[in-house]
Amino acid sequence: MRNIKIIIQYNGENYCGWQKQPDSLGIQGNIEKAIYEITKEKVKITGSGRTDAGVHALGQVANFKIESSIPAEKIPNALNAKLPKDISIIACSEVDDEFHSRYSAKGKRYRYLIYNQLYRSPIYKDTSYHVRYDLDFEKMCKEAKHLIGEHDFKGFMSSGSSVKDTVRTIYDITLEKHEDLIILEVEGNGFLYNMVRIIVGTLVDIGRGRINESLADIINYKSRGKTGHTAPAHGLFLKKVDY
Score class of each variant (00 low, 15 high):
179 E>F: 09
172 D>R: 15
107 G>L: 04
80 N>T: 10
15 Y>F: 15
90 I>E: 12
82 K>E: 14
63 N>P: 09
51 T>P: 05
190 G>T: 11
3 N>M: 03
164 K>E: 15
123 I>S: 02
130 H>A: 03
76 P>R: 11
18 W>V: 10
158 S>D: 07
197 R>W: 07
133 Y>Q: 10
28 Q>L: 10
55 V>T: 09
169 T>V: 07
50 R>F: 07
215 L>S: 08
227 T>A: 12
101 S>A: 15
63 N>V: 06
117 Q>I: 00
44 K>I: 06
160 G>C: 11
131 V>H: 01
53 A>M: 11
118 L>E: 03
40 K>N: 13
121 S>I: 03
83 L>V: 10
104 S>G: 15
122 P>F: 02
215 L>R: 12
59 G>K: 06
156 F>E: 13
102 R>P: 02
205 D>W: 00
116 N>S: 04
116 N>W: 01
58 L>F: 04
234 H>Y: 15
166 T>M: 14
115 Y>M: 04
71 P>W: 12
21 Q>G: 07
97 D>G: 01
9 Q>K: 12
147 L>K: 12
23 D>E: 14
211 I>V: 10
87 I>F: 14
105 A>R: 05
66 I>Y: 05
69 S>A: 14
95 V>C: 11
205 D>G: 00
223 S>P: 01
50 R>H: 09
131 V>G: 00
157 M>P: 00
3 N>S: 04
219 I>S: 11
190 G>D: 09
204 V>I: 15
17 G>H: 08
105 A>P: 08
178 H>L: 06
125 K>H: 08
56 H>Q: 10
139 K>M: 13
131 V>M: 05
218 I>E: 12
69 S>L: 14
25 L>C: 11
64 F>G: 06
97 D>S: 13
22 P>C: 03
120 R>W: 00
12 G>R: 02
208 R>S: 01
64 F>E: 07
180 D>W: 05
169 T>G: 06
21 Q>E: 14
40 K>A: 06
111 R>P: 06
178 H>V: 13
185 E>P: 03
228 G>C: 11
183 I>R: 08
167 V>A: 13
116 N>D: 10
61 V>P: 06
223 S>Q: 07
206 I>Q: 11
128 S>C: 01
154 K>C: 15
128 S>Y: 03
27 I>M: 11
116 N>K: 02
59 G>N: 05
74 K>L: 15
195 M>K: 04
16 C>R: 09
100 H>F: 05
77 N>S: 14
8 I>D: 02
107 G>Q: 06
125 K>C: 00
